[in-house]
Design a protein around this nucleic acid. Sequence first.
DNA 1: GTCAGTACCGGAACAGTGTTCCGTATACCC
DNA 2: GGGTATACGGAACACTGTTCCGGTACTGAC
Lengths: 206, 206
Amino acid sequence: MRNDVPFVKAMKKTNRADAQRNLDSLLEAAKAVFAESGVDAPVREIASRAGVGIATVYRHFPQRSELIAAVYRREIDACAASAQELAREHEAFEALTRWLHRFTSLIATKRGLAASLNAQDPAYQALPAYFRQHLEPALQSLLAAAAAAGRVRDDVDAYELLRGVGNLCVPVAEVGPGYPRRMVDLLIDGLRYGAPAPSGSGPRRR
Amino acid sequence: MRNDVPFVKAMKKTNRADAQRNLDSLLEAAKAVFAESGVDAPVREIASRAGVGIATVYRHFPQRSELIAAVYRREIDACAASAQELAREHEAFEALTRWLHRFTSLIATKRGLAASLNAQDPAYQALPAYFRQHLEPALQSLLAAAAAAGRVRDDVDAYELLRGVGNLCVPVAEVGPGYPRRMVDLLIDGLRYGAPAPSGSGPRRR
DNA sequence: GTCAGTACCGGAACAGTGTTCCGTATACCC
DNA sequence: GGGTATACGGAACACTGTTCCGGTACTGAC
């Protein structure tokens, strides 16, 4: 194998300094705009905020979802990595619960992100794939451990659960701010229902 | 009170025959187009299918969501009405489960409908309101009955549950066709978890 | 330092939405 | 049959995402 220097900045595929500079300010601008207006913000707004042309956005990110993934890459990776840590520090079910809560806030706090994960628009195609690739294994191992410990049922597919939680994070009008958390907790209790071993504590109450 | 003839066709606010004719073909066209292309289909397509101009659509339905609600009005009303029937014919928890399944298929089989319920676009504003107005009372009574019978927990808000189930019906790529049903079942088991009375049967297994 | 080649840039242009406006047509009432 | 209010149709506007292409300026060689 050649050129396998580890941790080389994954994004850098260009040699020209201006291109790299543009890429950086694009990511920074996108992050700011996403925080303000959600991930559905107009491309023009991101471009102008970054001080670049529209085409520059498309050159670096042919699909809008790639830009989103790039902006949140670090957070997604951190979330995936936290699974091992939680598994080390907590009992299996507790680790699973904590991770699902962490995942919940990852999704729920980014306006429009949850909806984008389900958009059938080809511009968003890469986003679910990115999430699946990075987060499914993390959840899979936590789920398997909790099931092996008899704390949750063993007939639930990790990816489906991931998407289910993601869907529950889609914000809803006329509903209190804790809605995603409450629904995810309900889903978690569904996981516990009928688990082989007694579960100790009762359901989370509001 | 004047002019309170019951069951007068709620939609008829016009006196001109051509307007009524247009309204009818508009609804028929919308129904067909929604079935083919989902509820996000272009307004122009619906208009041209109905053989009317674009403005005619907007005249009758200033908000897109009003058109959607009008098209599915009958099905929504039927779903709401079925709650009483189910409550009469089945034990409380069974009635609740069956109704939630019925609601699930109502949402899940209309492409794009689930997503539209969450769109923050003002054009879809009226849709969640319509659903809430008609379906929340139905679920509320079923939920209260099942809780009173000790079969489910009593700390879950009916509207939140309604929206939660709706969110779980948002279709997801790379997942089997039974996904919404499986997730809703999981949520239902979450309702049962820690209910006062023992629940009899175990969790639904796939 | 400067020169050439090319990688990259920017914005105009295109295409597809939703939405509004206004001159025109027509159904109803007398 | 005539007059008027009502409703109609499509052009026009505003705002998206996406593509194209002439021009710019960075890099590396000398």
